[in-house]
Design a binder for these strands. Structure first.
Lengths: 189, 189
DNA sequence: TTCATTTCTTGATCTATGTCAAGTGAACCC
DNA sequence: GGGTTCACTTGACATAGATCAAGAAATGAA
């Protein structure tokens, strides 16, 4: 079983046969540090698994970059509005490190459901999980302090703080870089 | 076309034939003010359209209620984790006013896909829209002040502020009742 | 390497928002 | 319909977190 097939299995749990069909529609692709996966107002006609590397999803609020999410190994990355509704991208998605991707074009992505009967169902379950994750994230902003949000992310994913510029993590956590720096200093003392 | 059928059409755009099939699986139901649609840790085995009325989705952070969302006429309401993954509810969902609902049981909900071929696909599109909405909401916490979030909600849905207890709206906007009160006072002067 | 640029930290302040407490008004229930 | 409860407002004060500015550290290019 290839690495890609392992990812697909872990997310979707399909038969070996379907797995091969799906995996065959992906191609390996590289993205160098600093390159863009998609840009706001472009059409993002692809969906990728991240095999290695880190990508940053961000947009602007009055000239200032706001980081919505950091995507990393084992995650999907795409602009959903573009992929599903054929509309322009809402996000800039930038490679923060060199990235190895498994990429499927929008056309091939849409063919999966013709080839794998259960696909639409599995995809629905996957999207439902994504929705629940975002619900939790909204709840965290309603109920947690900046420090609590930091603790939560740090508990889940310590490595991020060694790899990703802290200013991006601060933005994604809804605080300034200075505040994040002070919170982290406090944890040492 | 019944009111229910109009809702379904507006969300999913199915044929008249499929529409009838789907609509026939819903039953009319009432919920009195103060009653609960579901409670945390219960199993929520149903999905409803709200025909009239308002419902509040909330959970707790250390004994304190945190309102995640207010659902109203024309919206779906359910606990997604319970409906899709057969797990206990994450939310309390309470009727803030008397409510008229169109309700489908989990069993019948799952039968739709057997009767309407395109259903899983339409549902996937619907969930994708829900995901995009939540993405926007996360972005609003990353990029907007309390007052900007108030303005945004007020622009979209003025009526809420005459019907829903302001403390619930404050919580849903991520601020205290006092702060909401002061923001609203400022808007008058 | 070395210089230039960017990122991170730190201190001094400022401000939006939270907390606490009291008073007012509205809603609900015998 | 009058009293009790709950929701809302307002003021005084506290504080988390933002802003601004400067210096230190890391990163990248030549």
């Amino acid at each position: 079983m290839t690495e890609l097939e392992q990812y697909i299995t872990s997310y979707f749990g399909v038969s070996q046969e379907d797995l091969s069909i799906i995996a065959s529609l992906f191609i390996e692709q590289e993205l160098k540090k600093g390159e863009y996966f998609t840009k706001i107002d472009d059409y993002c006609n692809k969906l990728s698994f991240i095999r290695t590397g880190y990508m940053r999803v961000y947009a602007y609020k009055e000239e200032k970059e706001v980081t919505q999410w950091i995507s990393s190994q084992g995650y999907f990355v795409t602009d959903l509005q573009s992929l599903v509704f054929d509309l322009p991208s809402r996000w800039n998605i930038e490679a923060l490190t060199d990235c190895e991707l498994y990429t499927i074009s929008k056309e091939n992505y849409r063919k999966i459901s013709q080839k794998v009967a259960k696909w639409e169902h599995l995809e629905k379950l996957f999207l439902a999980k994504c929705f629940l994750t975002l619900e939790d994230r909204v709840f965290s902003f309603l109920s947690m302090t900046a420090e609590e949000r930091y603790d939560h992310l740090y508990d889940q994913n310590k490595e991020l703080f060694n790899i990703i510029p802290l200013q991006n993590l601060a933005s994604m956590l809804g605080m300034t870089p200075e505040t994040l720096s002070r919170i982290r200093k406090k944890k040492l003392g």
